[in-house]
Amino acid sequence: MNYFDPHIHMVSRTTDDYENMAAAGIVGVVEPAFWQGQPRTNVGSFIDYYDLLLGWERFRASQFGILHYCTMGLNPKEANNREMARDVLNILPRYLAKDGVVAVGEIGYDDITPAEDEALLAQMEMAKEFELPVLIHTPHRDKVTGTKRTLDAIKDAGVAPEMVIVDHLNELTLPLVLDSGVWRGHSIYPNTKMSEPRMVALLQQYGTERMVVNSAADWGKSDPLKVPKVGQLMLDSGFSEEQVSKVLFENPIEFYAQSGRINLAEVQRPKVDQTQQWQENSALRGQTPIVEK
């Protein structure tokens, strides 16, 4: 079974994680730009971090046969440092233009402040300009209010609901977004957020349409294998392989495919050792070599 983790912070994971993820069937990941556990103090730290997502981390993933995409954005926590936030928003367009950047994100609310409002709105405008989907994080605290505010902000910004995924949903907030037309993201965590059994229960109650599941694994206590683990529990609970594939592979790729920078065929294509393609100049047309293992 092929899996896709549409929200995971690989810069904080080890090569063992990559190995285990590949062994569990994860063929691609999306790494949203987010904060670093402690606040950054200047825009240069963002530039290096964004370059890391596009460069070294993508390379590291490729060494394990995993396709690595990312989203670019200014997270809500650091949006509250207004001076730095302004500098970050100024450099953001040049990153939104890059290949492999499949959405604007993760953006949204943390403390639900006016500064967060402004950064959210400005970045949704950029998403429209660069024709990119948007990954919106819902806050850990005051989650119901934050989710409602998020839906209002999407409407105010005039972003099409099918271009948005609202993430970290749970039993209380999923019903709030059901009628809005946005995609529904759920993060499965060892202790906080959602668990596998609760996720399977939501899928049984609400179906598989526009439903997306991720591990959101980072440098905290988290588990990069949560997507395949949900897959196993879905199968054990009577879901078909097609249904598992829809929720844990096709749905997230279909959402991000609206960026024009990822598609199902690309993620499913067989891996090749492209160093061999240099043997035949003709086989190289339009490509540059990559060793895929």
Binding site: W56, F59, T275, W278, T288, P289, I290, V291
Partner: peptide, 11 residues
């Protein structure tokens, strides 16, 4: 470290 970049310069 990138095979892509190295090849672009060398091949």
């Amino acid at each position: 470290n990138s095979l892509l970049l190295f090849s672009a310069m060398v091949m």
